[in-house]
Simulated assay, not measured.
Amino acid sequence: MKPILSSVFRLLLMTVCSSLPAIAQSDPVPIISSPAIEVSAEPPLVDSFTFEELLKIGGGGCGMVLWKGSGTHEDGLIFFNGLLESTALMKVDGKFVNFRRIEAEGKDFYGQKTGQVFISPDETIRVAIEVKLGEPGLESVAIESGTLRISRNGQTLDIPVAGDAGC
């Protein structure tokens, strides 16, 4: 029975191969490649946004907001992280980007930790945040100071931050 199966297989292979167009040995073999991925040599550009913009895209509510350390929330926010998973938002290179928390350590406050790491959906942008808490208020706590470190393609930008967290 083996010789019969072997003969059938050879006949099938010859039929399939004879129906394919002949490729000359000198013809180049086509190479299928994925589309080029744009790689920036610059660190990500972090844009500020307002509470109104945040609410317009479905963000906001309980959580943490950060702004550049020398300013106030009136100068614009640069980071928001809500209480639900994957609600972290930043405006990077002019577009809002959602982030997912992948690490958290330190003191708990309003669904946050004093040390947190986030990643973009395509895993090309990483955001690490370290904060020092200030005095607690009525249903909130001030973020006295901290650092937001954003990295993409080996390029890193450190931004001093301050902020607020609460509900």
Rank of each mutant, 00 (worst) to 15 (best):
K2E: 14
K2Y: 15
L5T: 01
S7F: 07
S7R: 05
V8C: 07
F9H: 06
F9Q: 02
R10H: 06
R10N: 14
L13E: 06
L13W: 06
M14N: 06
T15P: 00
T15E: 04
T15H: 03
S19W: 08
S19D: 11
P21N: 10
P21I: 12
A24P: 04
S26M: 13
P28V: 12
P28C: 04
I31K: 15
S34I: 08
P35A: 14
A36W: 07
I37S: 12
I37D: 09
E38D: 08
V39D: 03
E42D: 15
E42M: 15
P43R: 13
P43T: 14
P43L: 10
L45N: 12
S48E: 11
S48W: 02
S48P: 00
F49Q: 04
F49M: 08
E52F: 12
E53S: 06
L54M: 08
L54A: 02
K56M: 13
I57F: 14
I57L: 08
G58C: 09
G58M: 10
G59M: 03
C62R: 11
C62T: 13
V65H: 02
L66A: 05
L66T: 05
G69Q: 08
G69L: 01
G71I: 02
T72N: 00
T72A: 00
L77T: 01
L77I: 05
F79P: 07
F79A: 07
F79C: 03
L83M: 08
L84Q: 14
L84F: 13
E85R: 11
S86M: 02
L89V: 06
V92A: 02
D93G: 00
G94T: 08
F96N: 01
F96G: 01
F96C: 10
F96S: 06
F96K: 08
V97K: 09
V97N: 00
F99H: 01
R100N: 14
R100V: 13
I102M: 07
I102Y: 03
E103Y: 07
A104H: 00
K107A: 12
F109H: 11
F109G: 02
F109V: 10
Q112Y: 05
T114Q: 11
V117G: 05
V117Q: 12
V117A: 11
S120V: 07
S120W: 07
E123V: 09
T124R: 13
T124H: 12
T124V: 11
R126H: 15
V127F: 01
A128L: 12
E130C: 10
V131E: 01
K132V: 11
L133H: 03
G134K: 09
G137E: 06
G137L: 05
G137Q: 04
L138R: 15
E139V: 12
E139M: 08
S140H: 14
V141L: 08
A142L: 14
T147K: 09
T147D: 05
L148F: 07
R149M: 14
R149E: 13
I150V: 13
R152F: 03
N153V: 10
N153K: 08
G154S: 11
Q155V: 09
T156P: 08
D158M: 11
D158G: 02
I159T: 11
P160H: 07
P160K: 02
V161E: 04
V161Q: 05
A162H: 02
A165C: 06
A165I: 03
G166W: 01
C167W: 15
C167F: 15
